[in-house]
Design a protein around this nucleic acid. Structure first.
Length: 631
DNA sequence: CTAGGGTTAG
């Protein structure tokens, strides 16, 4: 190589160079800042080495891949090069891929390379430019370029074939991806994994599973993709099941796998499972930091163990170099209604680290304010997001504000936010306002908002149900039934209330009035006995919460007593030792009567009862709920 | 001197 460069040296032989050619190249590798690169760039110019493709490619790689990269600078270097070779083109095409808004530059560069230069694209070129097509969602160009690659005889190259498979999958053309996969003569583990990942991305876990079962050999990525896939489509049980199968007969899991398995536990409220994974992580000597730490904090927080989550967070000070653990901790405090602690964690991050808060941080922080009725603080953080932290509010942040203001009773102001925000409102945000209308019994506004929602999204069951419930709670049965009939006629299905509880590592689920559990008889007779005890203690069923048109008061009470929350709590009381805390999870918001009843249960049976509903936790102890009845 | 597959958060 040195001999090759010496030809360039002669151009400047009158000037004694500071470094030898090889020394310069080695120095490039040790650059730690843009100023150092500039110095070496200057040396490359004085020695004329800059006219040689190898040092220029090295320089470009540094300018495009290091932490202090500068695409503008790189592009300048590229433009100065008289006639770039294939390496230089490829490096530049690759450089533009990850910059979302400029990934079209990769394609532009590819086109000009084909049109204006004598350089013929090779397999590397296609790997890069096709990846750019999939990042930029450029379907027609992607297809043309595929044809081009095949014409050049690159359909036998496994890298090219794999990137084509991935591109079609990324573009949502899963059938096409499969066609390429099936027709490909050169397939390796990556092809199989790309194809599985394609099915996962399309939400087709059956397709993914079929390939997974079929494939000749599976590595840690194959398994992790499947475990993560099940978690993504909310098949958490399947996720954990497959994780255990992996431990038995697959390769050892890595951080990726563990994070997905922990997320599944968090979603299932499977604390025992989660603890088991924590032990496994420690036993196998994984370094607990960043994402894995975040996964653990998230799992413990979502399984009700907010104290323990905080303990881990505090004990691993040096492992918090990214935003992940912070967001998990702030989010954990938020769902537990520990608003001040969420704020404290945020302030601690701000004061003691250089980590910049992101979109998710503010969602958690605003959620915390909302759950704690901290209206002034919420307003202040919302105002400061863009101005002090450069995080522009997105629809989710506006949603948090609507929830915060609406729940606190500022309905008009909440509506003003929706009307004035720069993004078009969606059903979720109108739904938040509708929910607030229900809490504050503003039927008039609810009717208006309900109309808006149904105009834009006539199939929204949640909205209709909420509206019907509102009419019901005010005794306006005719109107309630009218809305309900519409729902029934259209064939829309309401999500049924479902409560789950983990016992000895098994998750048990209960629906309203469920009689499918093996212990049904015992549970129902326990419920009768329990209701009687609660009444003696002063519990009065809130029959206003019965939103069906049942005229008999006694029937209303029975309907309440069979709510899935109560079934799960009864099951827990029967099957656990005295004083053991009971953890349950409901897929919807907890109902007002169940909330009241659970307060009494915690006192009468002397149990701590931890309830996770769709939005937050309620810790019941000694007749009091941690949410202070604000939810 | 340039290649490919898998994570989490409201």
């Amino acid at each position: 190589m040195d001999r090759c460069f010496s030809a360039f040296r002669t151009v400047n032989k009158f000037k004694k160079p500071l470094y030898s050619n090889n020394q310069l190249l080695t120095l490039l590798d040790t650059c730690k800042a843009i100023t150092q690169i500039k110095q070496i760039h200057a040396q490359l110019i004085t020695t004329s080495l800059i006219l040689h493709p190898i040092p220029t490619t090295k320089l470009l790689k540094l300018l495009t891949e290091s932490s202090f990269s500068s695409l503008t600078y790189a592009h300048l270097v590229f433009e100065q090069f008289p006639s770039p070779d294939i390496f230089i083109y490829n490096t530049m095409i690759k450089a533009y891929i990850p910059t979302a808004q400029f990934s079209s530059n990769s394609i532009v560069l590819f086109k000009s390379m084909v049109r204006d230069s004598a350089v013929v694209p090779n397999q590397y070129t296609f790997v890069f430019v096709l990846k750019a097509c999939s990042c930029g969602l450029r379907i027609s160009e992607g297809e043309q370029i595929c044809v081009h690659a095949i014409k050049l005889g690159l359909d036998g190259n496994v890298y090219v074939m794999n990137v084509i498979i991935k591109m079609y999958a990324d573009l949502g053309l899963i059938t096409l991806a499969r066609k390429v996969f099936d027709g490909s003569t050169s397939r390796d583990l990556y092809s199989w994994n790309s194809m599985i990942s394609g099915y996962v991305g399309a939400g087709d876990m059956c397709g993914a599973r079929e390939l997974f079962d079929e494939m000749p050999e599976r590595d840690v990525v194959s398994w992790s993709t499947m475990v993560a896939g099940y978690t993504q489509v909310s098949c958490f049980m399947e996720s954990i099941e497959l994780f255990h199968e992996m431990l038995q007969k697959g390769p050892p899991p890595n951080e990726f796998t563990l994070v997905s398995a922990l997320a599944a536990c968090a979603n299932l409220l499977a604390l025992d499972q989660g603890k088991w994974i924590h032990v496994y992580i420690k036993k196998e000597g994984f370094k607990i930091k960043d994402r894995l730490l975040a996964g653990l904090i998230d799992m413990y927080a979502k399984c009700g163990e907010i104290e323990f989550a905080h303990t881990i967070f505090k004990s691993l000070d040096s492992s918090k170099q990214t935003i992940w653990p912070w967001n998990s901790m702030i989010g954990g405090f938020a769902i537990h209604g520990r608003s001040q602690e969420a704020i404290n964690a945020f302030e601690q991050m701000r004061m003691t680290t250089c980590i910049a808060p992101n979109k998710v941080t503010f969602i958690s922080l605003l959620t915390a304010c909302s759950h704690g009725k901290l209206v002034a603080e919420g307003r202040q953080y919302f105002e400061s997001m863009a101005s002090s932290y450069g995080v522009d509010p997105e629809i989710e942040h506006y949603g948090c504000m609507v929830d915060l203001l609406g729940r606190a009773g500022f309905l008009k102001e909440a509506e003003d936010i929706i009307v004035a925000m720069p993004v078009p409102p969606d059903t979720i945000i109108w739904g938040a306002l509708l929910g607030a209308c229900r809490i504050h019994r503003d039927t008039e506004m609810a009717e208006r908002i309900g109309k808006v929602i149904r105009e834009s999204n006539p199939n929204n069951v949640g909205c209709s149900v909420l509206l019907a419930n509102m009419y019901s709670s005010r005794g306006r049965w005719t109107e309630a039934n009218l809305v309900r009939e519409k729902v029934d006629l259209s064939g829309m299905k309401k999500t049924p209330g479902c409560t789950s509880i983990e016992l000895n590592g098994m998750v048990h689920q209960f629906l309203v009035g469920d009689r499918s559990h093996p212990q049904t008889e015992q549970i129902y007779s326990f419920l009768d006995e329990m209701t009687a005890k609660l009444r003696i203690a002063g519990y009065v069923p809130e029959i206003g919460e019965v939103l069906l048109d049942i005229y008999d008061e006694e029937d209303k009470e029975t309907a309440l007593a069979r709510h899935s929350e109560k079934l799960a709590i009864a099951f827990g009381l029967i099957n656990t030792a005295p004083k053991t805390p009971i953890r349950i999870m409901k897929n919807l918001r907890v109902c007002g009567d169940c909330h009241e009843a659970t307060k009494f249960i915690s006192k009468v049976y002397d149990r701590e009862i931890i309830v996770r509903d769709r939005l937050r936790f309620h810790h019941f102890r000694d007749g009091i709920c941690s949410c202070k009845d604000y939810w």
